[in-house]
Design a protein around this nucleic acid. Structure first.
Lengths: 186, 186
DNA sequence: ACCTGAACACCGTTCAAGT
DNA sequence: ACCTGAACACCGTTCAAGT
């Protein structure tokens, strides 16, 4: 039960990546309350204090998680497309990321300091893309991002039900296309 | 410092209404983390345990707060108006309520059990009103509610700055009118 | 009916001490 | 460099005891 004191044999310690992975699982399973430094340490077979060698604190941990989860949203897909399809792609990936880990998104909302750099990059990228499409780019950026949030977070309802989750994702795609039609055409 | 044991003289005890008011202040000042049963008790000059005679637990407290804050949203305004202006009025009041206490809205999002009855009534009312305006009433209800949330929560940024908050409220009105134009006209 | 102290089972985080 | 136990200052909530 009790681990030996001092530095463990090579390969026995925790690594930052393991911490993030375990933290995300804890968050998915038990929400913001499920992710405690102590529960995280137990899951990794380590004392809570050892975590602080790899992560600044709980807020820093959430910030790192958000960077990891949202990283894919800005990944450029091969050939460059027109502005509309790029906006569509970014929002779809963002909606997917939020939908995969709604509890993370919620936890970040509640913890102001955890709002990570990637989140800002996403909105910035959307703003500049939308500026090429419409004069009301701020207005539409807010509407689109807010709806991605709301719809993504709503996936908490379909906990486990893969079928329902898929239909909700389709509904989002439809709504997104509908909104893009409206902001592009007139 | 120490209060006498037993039931205090008439009028000295806490009342449910005082608890709710103090809890809302704590929430506004320190967010979800600022509202603790212990801090709340100290502010009311009472031991934490006495609160449990007036409130089921912390989740029940949040639920009660949400009922109080969102109650005005469904208040019927004198003469009945057409569907569009009623939708507009409800969303405006909802946006105001969220904007006045963004931390409460955030806390309720994070605590699933705290989602109060009034919140459901609001979306139900919006859904039936929108059904009279457009066939895509679910889609538009989601878009409108999500945007009210997002824009209302964004008021956390303008902490204290009354001028900025007012301009953000105006921006919301503009966006809301814009969306209503789009969903009514075609 | 309502308030109390004591207690239980938790938190995040710091610090000095180990290797 | 990294992990440790002990400690500090907190949490929500239960319970039996007071009036």
């Amino acid at each position: 039960m009790t681990r030996p004191r001092g530095r463990p044999a090579r390969g026995k310690g925790v690594e930052r990546d393991d911490i993030l992975t375990a933290a995300l699982t804890l968050l998915d399973e038990g929400g913001g309350q499920g992710l405690t430094m102590r529960a995280l340490a137990i899951r990794l077979g380590v004392t809570p204090m050892s975590l602080y060698h790899h992560v600044e604190n709980r807020t820093g941990l959430l910030r790192a998680l958000s960077d990891r989860v949202y990283a894919e949203v800005l990944e450029t897909t091969g050939s460059p497309a027109d502005h509309r399809t790029e906006v569509r792609a970014i929002l779809t990936r963002y909606h997917n990321a939020v939908g995969r880990h709604p509890q993370l998104t919620l936890a970040i909302f509640a913890e102001p300091g955890a709002f990570a750099g990637v989140s800002r990059q996403i909105t910035d990228r959307l703003t500049s893309l939308l500026a090429e499409i419409t004069a009301e780019h701020i207005l539409w950026r807010d509407i689109l991002v807010d709806h991605a949030h709301g719809s993504g977070l709503a996936l908490t309802t379909a906990k486990g039900d893969q079928k329902q989750a898929e239909s909700m994702r389709e509904r989002y795609q439809h709504a997104l296309d509908r909104l893009l039609d409206l902001l592009v055409e007139p």
